[in-house]
Design a protein around this nucleic acid. Sequence first.
DNA 1: CCTACCGATCGGTAGG
DNA 2: CCTACCGATCGGTAGG
Lengths: 196, 196
Amino acid sequence: MPRIGRRERILEKSSQLFSKQGYHATTIRDISEACGMLSGSLYAHIQSKEDLLFEITDRGAELFLQSLRPIVDSRADPVDKLRRAMIAHIRVITDNLEAATVFFHEWKSLASERRRIIQQKRDRYERMWARLLSEGVESGAFRIVDEKFARLLILSAANGLYQWYRRSGDLTPEQVADRFTEILLSGLSDGKEEKR
Amino acid sequence: MPRIGRRERILEKSSQLFSKQGYHATTIRDISEACGMLSGSLYAHIQSKEDLLFEITDRGAELFLQSLRPIVDSRADPVDKLRRAMIAHIRVITDNLEAATVFFHEWKSLASERRRIIQQKRDRYERMWARLLSEGVESGAFRIVDEKFARLLILSAANGLYQWYRRSGDLTPEQVADRFTEILLSGLSDGKEEKR
DNA sequence: CCTACCGATCGGTAGG
DNA sequence: CCTACCGATCGGTAGG
């Protein structure tokens, strides 16, 4: 019987390797070596290489969904909701940098069936953000011309984090979220001109 | 002697395949088949598979650099410069969607030497943006707390475009650039609160 | 978890 | 640009 945690260790090493080299450039021998075993031995724990990719991306998708749900369902005012949603989103990325990188960068390498599952979860997540933004527009808190565009801009900017955020950097996740929402809410211009 | 344009056709097909499947998931046989020849024949035109990846990403880097340079060197006011830089950046992406996708997604698959070349061009491009933003801060046109953060946010948001922009969509590159700068300059909040 | 191995496919080459 | 091929490596399996 495999020791508890063995599989977790394999998933963690896989995340590291997939995030650094990419899924296709990582071999089953790379993974098994990182786990201190031979390639054949890996198959006592997994059924296929793609299983690893799916499990990493699916866990990532669930983290995003579960951290946003309570915020969307809450009764805070829209600006506060946006702030809290941003913190949650950024926290998922910064707390799971490698898995997040795999989630954003490698999910398209999944075969059609499992790819569809991840796609659906991504869609659900985007819809939660869409609701959050449209509530803010309806209540008059946000002035947004094109909601879909605003949503894509926000999520693109936030998702880009996995490419430049390093734990060793000087910004905590909360600082990142603060600066992020500050720019998104108030903009970069000096504020002397009237809002159009 | 190879027909003029043969090599260009190979690069174009490679861009399509690399952007859709990724570099490592695309085989030399995929590319040669798309070009209507057998795998061995491809090597009459290229020296290695990696040559293709390098040439695509390097051209992409040059497009970004050359389109931004005249704007940074001009004497327009900072807000106008930002607008024009944004349009230029977005135009490069929308006019070269597949190459841009490869540039953003696959450049890390290059071996160390060529990877460094691309990395340097990316750094140069980022420094041009840094200058553009700090000019705006010095002149008082922009109110930016953390310039590096603002730059990373802007470029992340703009680069995300390759993941969702489709030519078939209803937004022209100019519309995209307009909405983009509008949100970045003025923010999403209703503007009733004072700027802090 | 190891030993020993498999068929398939990979990037690339030689000779024409 | 094709024919014919190569050594290396891939993901994965059987039996212990």
